[in-house]
Design a protein around this nucleic acid. Structure first.
Length: 505
DNA sequence: AACCCTATCAACCGCCCAGAG
DNA sequence: GCTCTGGGCGGTTGATAGGGT
């Protein structure tokens, strides 16, 4: 690997056209055209010499002083990414990989800051690594963030994230997470739990929302929502949760599994829905709709993602999920294939966790709503068996015509801040604000009510709910429209879980 | 061997910001 | 307050390696 890497490094990339090369070489030392493309060893030497002589900075002066036909930017890039001393080359170590995941979970696509945490590594390297990784995980349908990393982030403990070494006060400030009531004290996750979590959602098990108390940093409130298969809930206790959170969680799971399973009970008898699904199938999500064969030869329903197979264990070594867990999770996690499609075009800045939480809650709510109709097969409106074999969410999504799914494998951080993007802000904030301002019915979501989650009402609160406007326009309107129509849920938790869920309690 | 697909990664591009004038 | 400029950052591009068919 390193060998090939070195080979490649020495090889030329983006070879300029021969014409350009000629011109440039002719102008070497002159004021002529600035050279683009791969750096030669001669250029490197010149740059190194210049930096040794004049120091870093004032990159535009390089051309002046050394006659190098490179723009200042190019020089800086070359220096910082390749010529700078103490640069580590080669593949990332396991520890570095782990660190990157953790850092990304906290920082999002702040490559420069991440590189500051990883000595010898450049932002470009980290960025490339991450993008490659995300791409790979998207393809395999694995969660971008390992559950334990999510828990660590959720826990917010500096040690857990090795953040004790952070010097950057800004980072420290950002990382000043608060977990008001839902405490994850016993973070010794049993193997069982961890083994389940990845298959439940594309996102890590502990999806969370932080409501910002200041505009620059989304902080102060986090709200975990979890989704586990019913079989897992059969355990009386849940290792991560305690007190009311656990109660709520169990209730939520009862609700989710029962309600979601309903429409699929109908179809489970259908050939297409034989649940002999093996973990690891995720073609739906991957837009790989061609069914694959199970070992038994039965038609395998390609699940969208999150089902670890032995061949799809990720670097954090989460074991494959037991087959029996399919019972519930299958119905829960059949992400529309379109999600994957959309995620491909999703801005990498988007926040996968957050959007997934929001979308999922909406999906659950819709599912419940829809399932009441679907209990009777004859009532299934406008849904053919063929289309019915897909997740109702997908139908919803398609009907919504939303080009941007929240459940795409977006890969910004767990708590990435919303970065307003030009040209969209007028519409989206309005929707979000409308959503946030809708009144909550007293007593709803009492289990995880404002006692546990305090939300500071600020004009910037939407920053939290808008991790990335690039995808939010459609689906957020979709959600907010419904929320608006049906009143309720001032509390973000209520919003997340859905009013139907709330009203069940 | 030829082709296709994916992974990798250097380098570029465009935007943003801070500081100087 | 303004413009200009240098520098930084994040996103994207494109060449190449390498594996699979």
């Amino acid at each position: 690997m390193n060998e090939s890497k070195d080979k490649r490094m020495s090889r030329s990339r983006r070879n300029p056209s021969s014409d350009e090369e000629a011109i440039i070489e002719g102008n070497f030392g002159g004021v002529g055209i600035l050279k683009k493309g791969p750096w030669t060893s001669t250029e490197d030497a010149i740059l190194v010499e210049h930096v040794n002589k004049y120091g870093e900075g004032n990159w535009n002066a390089v051309q002046k002083h050394s006659g190098l036909s490179r723009c200042g930017k190019s020089c800086r890039l070359r220096w910082t990414n390749h010529l700078r001393p103490n640069l580590k080359k080669g593949t990332f170590s396991q520890e570095e990989e782990r660190r990157i995941i953790e850092l990304h979970a906290k920082m999002g696509n702040k490559w420069a800051r991440m590189s500051a945490e990883l000595p010898g590594r450049t932002d470009n390297e980290i960025k490339n690594y991450w993008n490659t990784r995300v791409k790979r995980l998207q393809r395999t349908g694995l969660p971008i963030y390992p559950p334990d990393v999510c828990l660590q982030v959720l826990n917010g403990s500096p040690e857990s994230l090795n953040m004790g070494t952070l010097d950057n006060p800004d980072v420290q400030q950002r990382d000043n997470f608060e977990i008001p009531a839902v405490e994850f004290e016993n973070l010794e996750l049993n193997q069982r739990f961890l083994s389940y979590t990845p298959m439940l959602l594309e996102i890590p098990v502990n999806s969370m929302v932080k409501i910002g108390t200041d505009s620059s940093h989304s902080s102060s409130i986090m709200l975990p929502t979890m989704h586990l298969p019913k079989c897992l809930r059969e355990s009386e206790t849940f290792p991560c949760l305690n007190g009311s959170a656990l109660t709520t969680f169990n209730q939520y799971m009862d609700y989710a599994c029962e309600k979601i399973a309903e429409p699929f009970e109908l179809s489970s008898s259908h050939d297409q829905f034989q649940m002999d699904v093996l973990p690891g199938s995720h073609a739906l999500l991957n837009d790989n709709s061609s069914s694959s064969e199970t070992s038994s030869g039965a038609l395998k329903l390609e699940l969208p993602s999150l089902q670890y197979s032995d061949t799809h264990r990720d670097s954090w070594g989460t074991p494959a999920s037991p087959l029996h867990s399919i019972e519930c999770t299958d119905t829960m996690i059949q992400y529309p294939s379109t999600w994957q499609d959309q995620s491909e075009s999703c801005s990498p800045r988007s926040s996968g966790l957050l959007e997934a939480v929001l979308y999922e809650s909406q999906s659950l709510r819709n599912l419940k709503k829809d399932s009441s109709q679907w209990t009777d097969p004859s009532v299934v409106p406008c849904v053919s068996m063929d289309s019915f074999s897909r997740n109702p969410c997908e139908k919803e999504w398609e009907m919504c015509g939303d080009p941007n799914s929240p459940l795409g494998h977006s890969d910004a951080s767990v708590f990435s801040e919303y970065k307003p993007m030009s040209g969209r802000s007028l519409d989206e904030p309005k929707s979000v604000q409308a959503m946030m301002d809708c009144d909550i019915e007293p007593g709803t979501v009492s289990q995880i009510s404002s006692k546990q989650v305090e939300r500071k009402e600020t004009p910037n609160q939407m920053d939290v709910f808008m991790p990335d406007a690039s995808y939010s326009s459609g689906w957020f309107r979709h959600i907010t429209g419904r929320v608006k129509d049906q009143s309720i849920c001032k509390d973000p938790i209520a919003m997340l879980l859905g009013e139907d869920f709330c009203s069940d309690y």
